[in-house]
Write a protein that binds this DNA or RNA. Sequence first.
RNA 1: GCGGACGUGGUGAAAUUGGUAUACACGCCAGCCUUAGGAGCUGGUACCGCAAGGUGUGAGGGUUCGAGUCCCUCCGUCCGCACCA
Length: 869
Amino acid sequence: MREYQHQQLEAKWRQKWQQEGLYTAENGQDKPKFYVLDMFPYPSGAGLHVGHPKGYIATDVVTRCMMMQGYNVLHPMGWDAFGLPAENYALKTGVHPTISTADHIVNYKRQLDDIGLAYDWNREINTTDPDYYRWTQWTFLEMFKRGLVYESHEPINWCPTCKTGLANEDLENGLCERCGTVVEKKPLRQWAVRITDYANRLLADLDKLPDWEDSIKEMQRYWIGRSVGAEINFKVIINTSGVIPHPSREAGAKAGILPVTVDQRLDSRLRGNDTGESAVIKVFTTRPDTIFGATYLVISPEHELINELGDAILNLNEVQGYISQVKNKSDMERTDLNKDKSGIELQGVKALHPVTGHQLPIFAADYVLSGYGTGAIMAVPAHDERDHEFALKYNLPIIKVVVPPALDQLNTVGFNSLPEHTDIRVVDDCYTAEGLAINSDFLDGLSTAAAKEKIIIWLTENKIGQAKVQYKLKDWVFSRQRYWGEPIPLIYCEYCHDNPTNEGERLNPGWIADDNLPVTLPMVDHYEPSGTAESPLANITDWVNVKCPRCGKAAKRETNTMPQWAGSSWYYLRYCDPYNDKELISKKAEKYWNPVDLYVGGAEHATRHLIYARFWHKFLFDIGVVSTEEPFAKLRHVGLILAEDGRKMSKRWNNVINPDDICSEYGADAFRVYEMFMGPFDQPVAWNTNGVIGARKFLSKLTALSQKVGDDSASKAAISQLHKTIKKVTSDIIDFKFNTAISALMILVNALGDEESLTKEQYGMALQLAAPFAPHLAEELWQELGHGQSIFLSSWPRFDAELAQDEAAVVVIQINGKVRDQMEVGLDMPAADVEALAKAREKIVSWLEGKEIVKVIVVPNKLVNIVIK
RNA sequence: GCGGACGUGGUGAAAUUGGUAUACACGCCAGCCUUAGGAGCUGGUACCGCAAGGUGUGAGGGUUCGAGUCCCUCCGUCCGCACCA
């Protein structure tokens, strides 16, 4: 058998393709465009392992196939090169990140090239290039000027190892996603981006993305976490005792059953028109319909109320003791679901129930999070499991106010008068589903939905609360106290400030935009993070001290840098117009290439990069830079390749396989075919080097077929197989079913191997189908056939339905659904004839003997099922 | 706990979407060939049975002429989120 020397062969074609500019995409051609994008890598010192290129190979297969189908394909690559590893490496070795990053990029690029990936390197970008990050900074300033960026002093996630603040998205189970350290909460001056302003659009527009996998969309929906409910004000009263009479005149009158002894003074205070002599606790709830079941309030230990009330809290020392105890716990410990709930009552203060006027105890407890909603809740222990657990532990009243719909016949007369459901202490069950309101005054008998609506109207009319939509998504903490990132281009001047919007709340006094972009990252001698709100840049005094661009007086630069996600939030746009020094992207390039038609990368980016990029894009849309609301039309995620031992590939386990070794031993083509053949693209699979040998055998068989090329055509059956394969491979590539595409190619090559002879055209078509997967070998064999130009400039073979037809159909004969016989019949034979033939079969006759035929089902060209009794 | 994906040979996996379960490949077994290499070729490879035949897609029910595929109940695996009120 004819063998092939993959090393010379592959190197030869790679060089030729580069020389000929085969992958160069031209802006604005007449041809239809197709933009295929990989998530660009962080060029680490370790280089690629065999898992990394799986997605790149898939996009490469699509790229080459689309090129052959006549598209002007853009398939670029670049480097997401800011980030901690380069900085940490600098700390250790003193080698500047610019140098180490450049080295790593050379290695990465060589590795990618060795796999034969069709990248247009003319468009290579690097997020650390000042010509690139000036536009990252520019977009940030555009946000700043529109009030979408604000300075905040909220406690944020702080990694004590990396010595930097982190965004919510940078955590994994309460650990720093980078280094695995337990993250602390730390108050820190920081810049934050109002991504929550876009929460609703980010959520709603997911529905406009039919070509995204549901799993990714669901993850984003959950991350954005929209909850519809109400915000309700509870007045705090101090040093009171005894129960206050029911204050709700209107409610009582409407229901016609309530006592009308109203404390006028209290009433006016409750309606929110008083002078602010008492504190208010705002709570958020998704179940305002259960308000009559609220028996206590809980605020988070961080809640400002504790400071506000101060000595009014009789057990202030104890409360503070509890709080410091909680603060010493990590988020991990705090949110451990298995642990007992803990809390402490604020003695001497009560909250007034805004409808019933009952005095409710107030607790501080760490099961209420400071970062969500208002950091305070009304506890309804009968209908919320957490509140229920807490109420049991602290012996608090539990009032049932919702019953399952099946119990709706119960005569629910009103508060305090129910015979059966007035159980103030329901111990065992906690009903969290929807149902019908009971014990709820004017809500009694209403369904949960109706009760929600009615109570919200009531709260609004009485200025006690209003409807409220709440998101889990938090504003994007945008400052990093580290060196190796884009400088935030702001200057602090004591005399000037930019007034970014007309809305007072968005004023950033003292901070002004430095429009003189790029603000380049200066060289430093010391990278050590300070552990404070400043980055190592703070030490470079001649960089930090500047003249105010507005007034010319002495001013200081912001020394925080941007998070790594900044540069990757818009890089796909820059590929379209990489050399533009006037604008982020030209209108022409944007109109032509945007949006990305196919985007492939790891699912780990579902709630990080993919949310940030969608947000960034929407902002650019709002300011007229891009013309679409969404950046990525079709998204596929790549399944992990595990090591042969089934674990993740890692230096730690010593199970890393380097693609360099595989490519030099078996060839890049065999490597590519194997990775695409391993299994479904989006599923995790363990690596098996034997599989590469199998792929290599297939390529050898494909090569061997060249010996059969002659004047005589292949058989009709083989031609039929060829056309079926064209159909299958074409649709499988679009559907990302590369494994079955290759299996179809293997079947074809096996079938052609049995032929005496095949024509140049027939062999050529087989080569074209294999070309996206095994580009080097296919090119070699194609040009051997005498074609003057690249196989990738040839037209993708077209499927001919007539040629693909079989001459005959094999029909299965079943008795009662069990296969008993099969026969070959002419295609599309009428059902009656097929049935007659089947019944006449010797085997079938014996099965039918003495039986009564109940029914016969004939599926054309497939089967006959005879039902007997 | 919530959300998503899934469960088929010794292994990775197919199955035209309700119509022959295990295609394709790895591995293994037997044979052939050889200039002994990461070779190549031929055949075999779900289980029980000598056979006829029977049984088989995590378990159990159901719908149907017919179920890996649809419905219900349960068990298990992987991924994401997780005290989000």
